[in-house]
């Protein structure tokens, strides 16, 4: 029962995050902090639930207690499987990649590369941009303010993915997430395709611009130079401007562990093929959106819903136990 409540809370949290990113209201520190606190609280609750059932020590004098112990033992085995799943290398490597991406973003923000170093995009007023950033005596938003949102988002992302992993042993949870989020994902995809559409010119990242201009640079450039935004302003380009050549491709490492599991399932193990297929399909769509879609707040919502679907599929595909909970 408690587990079901936690699952419902997690879904509410995901839906709130979806609405937040689509309406651009998740960025204010207050909402983001609230989101982080609730996620942390849910994770602690989940750990309490997982570890409470693992301890079946002590004497068992009577028959009813022995029977109860048998029931508890089954639950304990399920919980052990969940703990084992989050301790497998794919999840650990993924978490390490998230931290690595975050550290890279921090480096780019603390020691930004000059915008004039971008050779791929020929800005009309590149000298103006250089002046704009090099101007002395102006108060740019502090580094702490700039880095707060990405740090909170990364931390909340790891915790939410853990929660999805910990519930994915239940087939009903994964099925429910597909029923709710897959249609939402396609509706958002269709809506974005109709309202903003595809880019008309693809910009290949310039390897010389290996380090980016830091957080918030892409937004300013897209606002100042709207031609770039409407012509080739994809999520990929925004990432390239903010985190440079390395950061633009580093992002793809985040889906690498999930893709490895999907390939393994589809080619070697051939068990739980449907989640692997769904995960693979959504990953492909997300890569296309990342490269060729014009960046809007709805693209963020597509990424959030897509990631939840991928995480559900990835987590369930990776279980080594023969049968999962209903």
């Amino acid at each position: 029962m408690a587990e079901k409540i936690q699952q419902s809370l997690l879904f509410l949290l995901i839906i709130a995050a979806l609405i937040g990113v689509a309406s651009q209201s998740i960025a204010p520190p207050l909402l983001l902090s609230l989101f982080l606190s609730i996620t942390g609280f849910l994770v602690l609750l989940r750990f309490l639930g997982l570890y409470a059932r693992l301890q079946n020590k002590g004497a068992t004098p009577s028959l009813p207690q022995k029977l109860l112990k048998g029931l508890n033992e089954e639950r304990a085995q399920q919980n052990r499987a969940v703990i084992k799943r989050i301790s497998e290398p794919d999840f650990i490597i993924w978490s390490a990649f998230v931290m690595l991406s975050l550290i890279w973003l921090f480096i780019c923000t603390l020691y930004p590369a000059p915008m004039g170093a971008i050779k791929t995009i020929h800005f009309e007023f590149i000298s103006f941009l250089n002046d704009f950033y090099a101007h002395q005596g102006v108060q740019e938003p502090s580094i702490t303010m700039k880095l707060k949102a990405p740090f909170f988002i990364a931390l909340a992302g790891i915790l939410v993915t853990f929660l999805i992993f910990s519930f994915s042993d239940s087939r009903s949870f994964v099925r429910f997430s597909y029923i709710v989020l897959l249609p939402l994902f396609f509706i958002l995809l269709g809506f974005t395709a109709l309202t903003s559409g595809l880019i008309s010119f693809f910009v290949w990242p310039d390897a010389q611009f290996w380090k980016g201009g830091g957080v918030d640079t892409a937004r300013k450039i897209f606002l100042l130079h709207s031609n770039v935004a409407f012509d080739s302003g994809s999520f990929f380009l925004a990432r390239f401007i903010e985190t440079g050549f390395i950061g633009a491709y580093l992002f793809y490492l985040l889906i690498f562990p999930a893709l490895c599991v999907f390939f393994h399932i589809l080619t070697v193990r051939r068990r739980r093929v449907v989640p692997a297929f769904i995960g693979m399909g959504v990953t492909t769509i997300l890569i296309v959106v990342d490269l060729f879609w014009i960046y809007t707040p709805f693209v963020n919502a597509i990424f959030v819903s897509g990631w939840v679907i991928i995480a559900c599929s990835w987590a369930q595909s990776g279980y080594k136990t023969a049968c999962l909970k209903r």
Partner: peptide, 26 residues
């Protein structure tokens, strides 16, 4: 099972503290 549960537990605790602190201060 390894160190991952401990790290995640620490992250959760850290997230709660950080979130509340951030709400109060900022």
């Amino acid at each position: 099972e390894g160190f991952m549960p401990s790290i995640l537990c620490f992250c959760a605790f850290f997230a709660i503290c950080l979130g509340i602190m951030s709400i109060v201060i900022n």
